[in-house]
Design a protein around this nucleic acid. Sequence first.
DNA 1: ATTAAAAGTGAGTAATCACTCGCTAATTAA
DNA 2: TTAATTAGCGAGTGATTACTCACTTTTAAT
Lengths: 226, 226
Amino acid sequence: MNKPPTFVEGLLQYVEELKDESEMTEKQRNILRASVKLFAEKGFHASSTSEIAKEAGVAEGTIFRHYKSKKDILLAVVAPVLVKFAAPFILKDVREIFKEQNKKTFSQIVTELYRNRIDLVLANEKHIRILLQEAFFHDEIREALIATVFTGVKEMANKLIEAKVEVGELRPLPTQAVFRAILSSMIGLVLFRQVLDTDEFTQFSDDEQIALTVDILLNGIGNHSI
Amino acid sequence: MNKPPTFVEGLLQYVEELKDESEMTEKQRNILRASVKLFAEKGFHASSTSEIAKEAGVAEGTIFRHYKSKKDILLAVVAPVLVKFAAPFILKDVREIFKEQNKKTFSQIVTELYRNRIDLVLANEKHIRILLQEAFFHDEIREALIATVFTGVKEMANKLIEAKVEVGELRPLPTQAVFRAILSSMIGLVLFRQVLDTDEFTQFSDDEQIALTVDILLNGIGNHSI
DNA sequence: ATTAAAAGTGAGTAATCACTCGCTAATTAA
DNA sequence: TTAATTAGCGAGTGATTACTCACTTTTAAT
């Protein structure tokens, strides 16, 4: 059976053809900007093309000059974020963090990783909102998200974990459980920061929160001084 | 200024009037069942009332006999889950777990809590999907979700944490950071279980995963035996 | 300056949307 | 049994949907 190209494969090809923002017309940029705003606020299906046109200050026909369907706009919005997470030239940040792993302690590496990922989320807040929303419904996007963000990082992380276990810096726990702990802390960090900005949380700076999180990740919340 | 009742207040009143499933007609139950299915699969806005009618084997007019608008169906679907999380008679489970806290170790309490919450998610998977999806868009639902799930549990958790710190079972960390760590681990646990069921993950049973998670939460992943 | 291609327009399209209404069928109260 | 209420129906409502197309304007190449 000759499977059609997966969404991920299609995505990579699609991104190749993706226009750089600089070679877009003013109006096309407006369309994208308006779409991001509306999709993030009300969701993809609740946003109509007429609304997008109005928000962008453009005739409705112009939208379809650049994007052959509404779903195409979604892809144009979502794809860059996906590659920002995954594409080598951005994942380079991560790779670099992991790279000199024998020169750095695990806590240093994780601290850098958290800082880096929080910045990435902050810089792409609305896009990531849209990405997560649509990942709920569209299997394609969810699979792409998992394949890029998740599987990509997992490989590297697992190597790091196993190396650090051998050196004796980490306890010999199942790698998968350690990976999950690292990711959970990161997700919690971002989640609390973004959606639950209560007084208790904002009393600490980002860097303090990260430091606390890494401390707990490594040492736990239990008291062992007895 | 005389503020209108908040969504949460409205919700509680609304739930009072909520029909018990047993006193619904066959057709009404079908409408709800069909709505849950479609909302979970494609999202609220992408599901039309005509689809719901067809899926439920009912005339479209019948839907509006029972629910005065489409959004009303969403509320009828979502509200019960919200109260399952929050309503005293269900939060009782949690309360009970926390209750005999001086007789139990922290790790026992958290283990029970995780087990209990995982079961709740498993038993209401689709509904929770819908709840989370719509929490993205509707401020009302998000606020209700935070107010019930989050704020309710936080009070109890904070007391427990502070008590256990005093006893010397937990390290004297900022309560907020400890709370976040507990919640992050729980979210990670459910998230990995539900959306990332890879081979590596499913090689352990639920209870083993919980045990690992609690171990890491308390003792960290760092090696202190040196 | 000429020409071809690309960008932009907005009225128009069929389909679908949430919802209504006048009706019949079934259930309940008296 | 009768009267009154509720449940169920489905054709019909205007509004809105994503999208098209014949047309004009702008840009770029020769």
